[in-house]
Structure formats: structure tokens, C-alpha cells
Amino acid sequence: MKIRPWQRRLVLVLSAVLAVLCAVALPAAYAWDGPGSDYTSRYLTRVESRYADTDLARFHYTVQGSGSPVVLIAGGALWGYSWRDVLPELAREHTVYAVDLPSQGYTELRQRDFAYDLHAMSAAIGAFLDAVGLERTALVGHSWGGAWSLYFAEQHPERVQRLALLDSPGLDAEKAPITPVFRTPVLGELATNLTGRGFYADSVRGTFAHQELVTEEMIDEGYAPFATPANRAGFLALWRNLDYRLTDAGLFRVTAPTLVLWGGADAWLPASQAGRLADRIPGATATLLPGCGHTVHEDCPAETIPLLAEFLR
């Protein structure tokens, strides 16, 4: 097919525009660490920070209560602050740990070749449990934290007493709508490194049905640790490396009693996944909470916490 002069000119113009965009975008995508935060956590003045030192990481965590152990694992771009309402209530009957895994909160990664995939995140859970002396525990995970907990329960069923999954991916099924953005080269780097407090706030609000509950403190507490270069890099790597074909294939290996909790108004992952996930895990049950979003324990604490307490009891 003969190329017409106007077509040739259009190609040249588009090539020039693309070259300019790449010249501007690539430094931001690969060289710039992104906007930071000078916020000092108020939450950490209200709880006692503890650290568990391992070869893999220096894990930051908080612990309250006494009784059988429960470990809380937050979702992507969140940290132990996300459990601020859950932890003290469960601590009435349990020793409750809220741990930051690599890419979260105030944990410092020490293993340079850490893969940020399901194998690595499962190993991080095991390393933390070993460091605090927990041979067997209940695990409660939200979103990505639930996926990591699920995979750990598949690989180490003897170490998981009970398992609660809150709006957690685990099926080889629908992904969050924004997934292609972070998995696309350059575009993913741009999206991660250009995320400022405002975009982070919009993302958090998108996980709530009751957006009036998203406070300025909540945004500051979440954004401050996310804004560090190490956590941004880990966040992007997780988007690209988490392979739910692995969790899907191993669901039959879970031996712990399992509760799947899901917000009926989850805009990130369809609530239909709750029943499908529970059906595939031996002895699991699924509970939908109508009118609740993806971050169900913060969006609907009055409904979520009693269900968790009863299940763990």
C-alpha cells in the first residue's frame, strides 16, 4: 500500500510527540523516587512499636492482648494502622499481632534479591512467625495480605490454626480494574512514582462504600510509609509478580477452618468471588456484607469485627 504524503507527515509528527513524551516520562518513571511525605505518625505514639530482626527483614509490628495468637496482615499500600479498630477488640481474647510485611509500613527489607511474589511473601510470614516464636497461629489477611496468608496456609497448613480472608484475591479470576496500568512497562513506573498524596487519597476512597469515613489522618498515616522509595518499588513489583494461578491451584491444601468475608459493594474485586473462593477451600464459609467496600474492616467495622471475633473464638 502506497503511503500518502499526509500519512508520512502524520507519522513523523506522532513520532516526534512520542519522543518528547518518552524524554519527559522515562526519567520520572525510572529515576525519580516520587513525592515524599514529612508526616510523623500519630498512631505510633498511641501504640508500642516493636521490631523483629531477621536476615530477611527488620519487621515492624505491634502486639496487644493475651491468649491464643492471631496475626493480622494488611493489604497492599496499607500497614498495621489499617487494623487500629480490629486489634484492640480481638485482643480481649487473643494475643494479636499486626505486622508490616515487605513493602508495607515501617518494615525494613534486608534481603536484596527479595522477589516480591507469593513465594517470597509466604517466606516473609514464616520468618516473622519464627522471629516472634509462633509455631502455629490464626491468620487474618486483607486483600493482598489475604492472598499472602492464603498461600502460606497452602504451603504450611500445619502452622495455620484458623484463616480469615477479607476481600482477598486467590482465584485465577477477575483482577482489579487498575491492574493493566501497573503491569505495563513505563506506565506502571509512572503511575507508582507520580502517585502523590491526592491520588493516594482517591485510591483509598475507592475502596470504601462509606467515603465519609476516610479521614485526613487515615490518608496521612497510609501515604507516609507508602511514599518511601523502597515501599513504592515493592508495591509495583507485587502488582507484576503476584500470580494467583498458584493460590488457585493449591486451595485444596488448606486444612484450617476458613472464613471468607467480602464487602458486597467492593469496587476492586467482584463480590461474586467470595462464594467461589469458599467453595474451593475445604470447609470454608463465605459471608457477604451488603453496602461495604473493599477495605471492609475499616469501612464496616461494626459488622466485620464481631464476625471475626466469633470465628476466631
Rank of each mutant, 00 (worst) to 15 (best):
Q111Y: 12
Q111N: 14
D117W: 10
L118R: 08
H119L: 11
A120R: 06
S122L: 04
S122K: 03
S122D: 13
A124C: 02
A124T: 07
I125V: 04
G126R: 06
G126A: 10
G126C: 04
F128I: 01
L129S: 06
D130N: 05
A131W: 02
A131K: 02
G133F: 06
G133L: 01
L134M: 02
R136V: 09
R136C: 10
T137R: 02
L139N: 10
V140N: 11
G141H: 08
G141S: 00
H142Q: 15
S143D: 10
W144E: 12
W144V: 12
W144K: 13
W148Q: 14
L150H: 05
E154D: 03
E154T: 09
H156R: 10
E158D: 14
R159G: 09
V160T: 03
Q161L: 11
Q161G: 13
R162V: 09
R162C: 00
R162A: 04
L165V: 03
D167C: 09
S168P: 13
P169R: 08
G170R: 03
L171M: 04
L171N: 09
D172N: 15
K175M: 14
K175Y: 13
A176N: 14
P177T: 05
P177W: 07
T179R: 13
T179I: 10
P180I: 07
P180L: 08
F182T: 14
R183G: 08
R183S: 12
